[in-house]
Amino acid sequence: MFEFDHVSLGYPTSRNAGTKYLPIIDNLTLSLTGGEFVCVLGPSGCGKTTLLNLAAGFLTPDQGQVRFDGREINGPSPQRGVVFQDATLFPWRTVLGNVMFGLRRQGVDRHQARLQAITILTQVGLGEHIDAWPVTLSGGMRQRAALARILALNPKALLLDEPFSALDANSREHLQDTLLDLWQKRPRTVLYITHSVEEAAYLADRVLIFGPAPNHLCADLPVTLPRPRYRSSTEVQNLARTLRQHLNQLPCCLKPSKDPS
């Protein structure tokens, strides 16, 4: 589904003498299978978000190719829905207006778009809040709306960049369950960036431990635990422990760099 083919992305630095190229993603080759729920774990600053931005088409690689369904990605598309860390709903539109925005852009007529938006908002648990302005919603509700906004377009892949990390534990777990539920009803490729080992252990089919350039893929672990999983079950806890051990071998966070994302 997603293929990263010897992908490099960086920025030139001209500190002191000469121009140096500082890679964020360095010669990464990776492929994600259709319908797979992939979590990417790793210290901050190692290029996780850049990876997602490449998959989304927000960034173009300097070298190599990113392909989706066999075709080179050349820009953002409703086929690859993105949920950002910050919900980024348009504050000048109501929740319903935000969900309708994408549908209308696909040429769905106003009436139909309204109905579809209401359906999907009900599915994510916002049926009561369709006419609310984003500013009046809690963080969790905003992320639900952001999720509804892309699910309405029925994308082939979901790209989520630490979507629930700013939420309180309770909202986070609820949203994880909503996401899993919707994903199980209609499996699609999910690329889920996170820094929480518990989250990865609970959600993923496959966990990628991402490290700093040039050796990005520190570990590529398939998760075979059956679903539904339980957060407190020994299996999930054991998996989280294994993931944490992998993560502990990496520096906790890398020096901040000017990320072009």
Binding site: P76, P78, R80, G81, T88, F90, F101, R105, R149
Partner: peptide
């Protein structure tokens, strides 16, 4: 304008005019 709004709009299929 917050670049995330622009990215979100493009991802939702907005043309340059919209």
């Amino acid at each position: 304008v917050n670049i995330h709004y622009i990215r979100a709009a493009q991802m939702l299929g907005a043309t340059p005019t919209t």
